[in-house]
Design a protein around this nucleic acid. Structure first.
Lengths: 115, 115
DNA sequence: TAAGCTATATGCGACGCACATATAGATGGG
DNA sequence: CCCATCTATATGTGCGTCGCATATAGCTTA
């Protein structure tokens, strides 16, 4: 019942992973994002691909097909300067929210412990 | 551009405020919720009233009309045991998410500082 | 009596996902 | 050789949570 969504963490997480500079196509990012444990459930592939395309439409990333390796073609993504700036914006927002949430948790725990 | 939604913080915040036991009708909760600073923008009254009614439908709160005071009638809300349990569930979820977000912020800041 | 505050409520639409499904190239086993 | 499976990208659809607008109505004050 009580679940809690991702609430727009996919986008900043993708920007972060791309900022780390390793090979970066969607399917790989999907695995790495799941490994980060930011999310409570497995991340939906559809959400990844859509987020990447929107980020590209906004100029935060650029992509290029890679047909060199075996298997189906990969769309490789790279972070732009605008993308780095976008990540920085996200960080301040998320930091503020994390702090507010921690404070709330402390208050609520105190209340619950009172009984 | 970079905004970040409430991501389901209204419901736990309401449960918390009701748990503190003070007079509790929607309009008052609205002001107190805004004072908490949990949200980046002002909370929408519609969201409050809808959340309260849904919580009542789920048995987490109960309400009663109060026509004693001046001004329009107020619908006073009270937390149930089920509501307290619900708040406890939320707290564990939010604590985990806040921790993950803090860790992400640290990592991302380290990455951005590398330049 | 008109404006403004208190108080509750609904309509509508956007956005971000969850779940399902489609496609297709490559690879390995029976 | 063909079927299953893995890799990889992509779209369709629907739902929940708001954000914004609007409606209503009682009471207060100028």
């Amino acid at each position: 019942m009580v679940a809690g969504r991702l609430s727009r963490l996919i986008e900043p997480a993708l920007l972060y992973l791309l900022g780390k500079g390793e090979a970066a196509h969607g399917y790989d990012l999907l695995a790495r994002l799941n490994a980060m444990g930011l999310t409570e459930t497995q991340v939906d592939p559809g959400a990844i691909y859509r987020a990447l395309r929107q980020l590209e439409a906004e100029g935060a990333v650029v992509s290029a097909w890679d047909t060199s390796g075996g298997g189906p073609a990969r769309r490789n993504y790279e972070l732009t300067d605008l993308g780095r700036a976008r990540l920085a914006s996200w960080v301040t927002v998320i930091a503020r929210r994390a702090e507010a949430m921690s404070a709330f948790v402390d208050d609520a725990r105190r209340l619950l412990d009172e009984n």
